[in-house]
Design a protein around this nucleic acid. Structure first.
Lengths: 158, 158
DNA sequence: TGGATAAAGGTCAGTTAAGGTCAAATACCG
DNA sequence: CGGTATTTGACCTTAACTGACCTTTATCCA
């Protein structure tokens, strides 16, 4: 089932892969027109599919000659891994961010498809509800479990 | 006597047998319309007739363009995992038992080293205690989480 | 030169289109 | 008759998508 968001995502990724620089510029209006959708749809896609956790950065300018620039940030180095995980695990845990991070790990082939699926499954709220409450406890547990799982992956040898 | 559930079950199985992939996607609404029944009837059939024990797995997405995906577990895999699946369909849960399964799976090379480590990590009591009690709840949670992970592995291709 | 205007993009609440849950009602079977 | 399986309906959650309204920037012209 391919959604509009999927198509827009694919299109932008294609642009990125064709670009010799590490970013591409788009015009929100144009893209929206190309896909016959509301301009705000583009923001939606950027937010959901091109977040920092996924390894992208967005910058933009309004007004005449405005644009949206999408950067693909460098692949994760061993060192940077720890930082991302600490960041995700610091403060309130947001499963959605963790999920995005998983997507990125997949794209960079740091984890296998199966591992990605396992990690994703561990973040589902339904696993915890009825057994754990209030919500804050659910988050803490998810955090612990996510961290534990990812650390095992980090420990290495395939 | 042939019940509605029977017909729906047959229909889905037919779809699966016609599919070249190891899953089919359905739309709950559509199916319900096709069989002139309440949408929740579909969930009922899936729950009763397409459980892991019977060799199937379900996954779904809500919202616009939502879907329900039904996997048929590859018979070979099912064979290999039968003991685990049956164990998980039963009542209580002992982490030690699960650990033994993991070990066995490693020896037979049906999971990778990394997957083995992840699964093991998920069973550690320390992850749960302090956040969950009494012990019976810890066990239930461990079971759910372990089961969720196993099911993702069962979903297939590497 | 600076104020009006046009041409971008941003935000956010609300709508639509899915699927999920659970308990109550009903049907079937031994 | 009692218990189990089926079926339904009311209500909930979630993801995608839209539209109205807001802000920023460039540029043009008096």
């Amino acid at each position: 089932m391919v959604t509009l968001s999927d198509s827009i995502e694919d299109y932008i990724k294609k642009l990125l892969s064709l670009s010799s620089r590490l970013y591409v510029d788009i015009r929100r209006r144009e893209l929206a027109q190309k896909f016959s959708c509301a301009p705000s749809q583009i923001n939606y896609v950027l937010e959901r599919r091109f977040s920092a956790e996924r390894g992208y950065l967005i910058e933009s300018r309004r007004g005449g000659r405005g644009y949206i620039r999408i950067y693909r940030i460098n692949p994760l180095q061993k060192q940077a891994w720890k930082a991302v995980i600490d960041y995700l695990a610091g403060g309130d845990f947001e499963p959605d961010k963790a999920l995005q991070f998983i997507k990125r790990c997949r794209e960079e082939n740091i984890i296998t498809r199966r591992e990605g699926r396992i990690l994703q499954a561990l973040l589902k709220d339904e696993l915890y509800t009825a057994l754990v409450s209030p919500e804050i406890k659910v988050r803490s547990l998810q955090k612990r479990i996510f961290k534990a799982a990812i650390e095992e992956i980090l420990k290495g040898s395939y």
